[in-house]
């Protein structure tokens, strides 16, 4: 099983367009993520969180700055990753299992082995019985679980998630958060988790990076020192309240929130 990768970014900047109409979306930011670490980026809408994810995956080139994955400079899209977006982005013409095995088909992996891994993930994600269903036959939460299985079936060293639970109801969200944590504890991939939700960031992460409004910069870094696995109701930890308060106060200082 592959271990988590390290991510080191220096002076990462992204602008779209050029000249007068250029839009400065992100940075410069520095990121240092250790192998097997679970890191969240939290910030207001449009702050460049998703852009950060695309840069780290190599799917979009940075306008300035550099990224190294496991010490190797990133120049093209890396394939040792799994990506989950806010929308499940499953292929409507493939069943749940075939959506996951797309990884195997495109990468040319061993079929039996991938199938076994997929079945294990289905079991861990509560998807047993959903294998032969098409996406339209599944609930929103189930689709997102299939999407997570697809991102993990090839045993990547890194998992990038862009508001993966953003479209789910609060109850499914709490459950899927726990299931993801358990899966991560088992495999210890490096996870970059992008979210709007303070609860989610604290509930899952080893470290939380708080970002400012556009152009996004990292304005605070919080180490979350809570035991794992974390409970559904995080409020029972006094530290949770302190972490939450700290993030809110950063947002208030930045003018994201205005409370009188």
């Amino acid at each position: 099983m592959s271990v988590g990768a390290s991510i080191n970014a220096r002076g990462l900047t992204k602008s779209y367009g050029s000249g007068e109409g250029a839009f400065h979306a992100l940075g410069p930011i520095d990121l240092d993520i250790k192998p097997g670490e679970f890191v969240s980026l939290i910030g207001p809408s449009g702050c460049g969180k998703s852009t950060t994810m695309l840069l780290v995956s190599g799917l979009e080139p940075p306008s300035a700055g550099s990224i190294a994955i496991d010490g190797r400079p990133l120049t093209k899209p890396i394939t040792e990753i799994g990506i989950v977006f806010q929308d499940h982005l499953l292929l409507e013409f493939r069943t749940a299992m075939k959506n996951v095995l797309l990884q195997q088909e495109i990468r040319g992996l061993d079929r039996a082995e991938s199938r076994q891994r997929a079945e294990h993930l289905f079991a861990r994600l509560g998807l047993v019985g959903a294998e032969d269903r098409y996406p339209w036959q599944l609930s929103g939460g189930m689709r997102q679980r299939v999407s997570i299985a697809r991102a993990l079936v090839h045993d990547p060293s890194m998992l990038l998630m862009d508001e993966p639970f953003g479209a789910l109801d609060a109850i499914s969200r709490t459950q899927i958060r726990h299931d993801l944590e358990m899966l991560w504890l088992e495999t210890r991939k490096t996870v970059l988790f992008i979210t709007h939700s303070i609860d989610e960031a604290i509930g899952l992460s080893d470290r939380v990076f708080v970002m400012s409004r556009s152009p996004g910069r990292i304005v605070d870094e919080i180490k979350i020192d809570l035991p794992r696995p974390r409970p559904a109701h995080l409020g029972e930890y006094p530290d949770f309240a302190a972490y939450t308060k700290r993030i809110y106060s950063v947002f208030e200082k930045l003018g994201v929130y205005k409370f009188d």
Binding site: S57, P77, T79, D87, L91, I106
Partner: peptide, 29 residues
């Protein structure tokens, strides 16, 4: 076809032919 599907296939290391054959063509069918 959702352009973000292109991100997903590229992260799988798909060749342009694979992206067409496995995603784009059936999605446009």
């Amino acid at each position: 076809v959702d352009p973000r599907l292109d991100y997903i296939t590229r992260s799988m290391g798909a060749t342009p032919w694979q992206a067409f054959r496995y995603v784009r063509l059936p999605a446009s069918m």
